[in-house]
């Protein structure tokens, strides 16, 4: 993919990473960090890249061609970050792709496609029928900066307001599948579970300190018949992640036991023999014994 003249990119990496508990920019992604990975992807299409970081944020050596801008005050939200980025992009750049540092599977083809749609619009933003993606979108530098400044003055800090007030085009994600069949570009990392999931998708190793606690699964009845094992040890920090791990390790469970990333209502999880686990976000702790059983006990 060739670099597009007058097209730049802004990476917002100054967020708090609260749910992650670790700076997302510095998360290992293969041999690189996430920020380096983002730069590598964007470098394939953008002629200039600005990284917006928080005042004291530690970043790896990014090379002299990357401009690093520090927010004056930390954690003021994405609109402030966009403001910093847009103010510091050079004059030759007409439009920019703005992203965070946490979407490691971004496809340059997708960015190119959005950029191609942007000639007559100030903002081109994907939409999936429910959500808009302002941090996977292409913006015209000058009019957007003006609007951002105004919104900040008015104390209206949601990026969504840009969509309403700029001359915008939304693109349904279904039309993007041509470039990104699994819509991987929209998979971002907010939690350690998201991080592990993405690493597993890409067959990259999970750093030791980010591994989920080991959980001992006991299969009974049909799940045991299907998996052909009585026990397994998987790593997961909650039921949702456990289901995802079960699907990955025992794909044959999908359909008869796991449906729509949830347990089929004919089955249930128990922690030991006394605690019924109902909520997918129920936290698991190391060495939990989780039983997968038919609801229909007895008979």
């Amino acid at each position: 993919m060739a670099v597009t003249p007058r097209f730049g990119a802004i990476i917002l990496c100054g967020g708090q990473s609260r749910r992650m508990g670790f700076s997302k920019a510095l998360l290992p992604f293969g041999k690189k960090t996430m920020i380096e990975n983002a730069i590598d992807i964007l470098g394939q299409i953008a002629s200039e890249i600005v990284v917006v970081a928080s005042p004291d944020q530690i970043l790896p050596e990014l090379g002299s061609i990357i401009r690093i801008v520090r927010d004056p005050i930390a954690y003021q939200g994405p609109l402030k970050g966009m403001q910093s980025g847009l103010m510091h992009i050079s004059d030759q750049i007409d439009s920019v792709f703005i992203t965070a540092t946490d979407s490691p599977l971004l496809k340059p083809e997708l960015i190119h496609h959005l950029s191609n749609q942007s000639e007559n619009f100030e903002l081109v933003m994907p939409f999936d029928g429910k959500y808009y993606y302002p941090l996977t979108a292409v913006y015209k530098v000058k009019p957007v900066l003006e609007k951002v400044n105004q919104l900040i003055r008015d104390d209206r800090h949601r990026p969504f307001f840009l969509m309403e007030e700029l001359h915008s085009k939304t693109i349904h994600v279904n039309k993007i599948k041509e470039f990104d069949p699994n819509l991987d570009s929209f998979r971002n990392i907010n939690t350690p579970g998201d991080y592990r999931n993405i690493l597993q998708t890409t067959n990259l190793p999970i750093p030791e300190e980010f591994r989920a606690p080991p959980i001992h699964i006991e299969f009974y009845g049909v799940p045991r018949l299907i998996t052909k094992v009585a026990h397994a040890t998987l790593e997961a920090e909650n039921l949702a992640e456990l289901i995802s791990e079960l699907s990955r390790n025992f794909p044959e469970l999908k359909g008869p036991v796991i449906v729509n990333e949830s347990l089929h209502p004919a089955y249930r999880f128990m922690r030991g023999t006394s605690e019924f686990l109902m909520d997918l976000q129920d936290p698991l702790v190391a060495n939990d014994k989780i039983l997968i059983l038919a609801v229909d006990a007895g008979g």
Partner: peptide, 24 residues
């Protein structure tokens, strides 16, 4: 034919043995 009856279809009631054992 759904998973709600799979236990009986695939294994029969003998499937209870291990479960009840686990539950003491």
């Amino acid at each position: 034919f759904t998973p709600a009856t799979a236990k009986y279809r695939e294994l029969g009631t003998v499937a209870n043995l291990l479960v009840f054992n686990r539950f003491e």
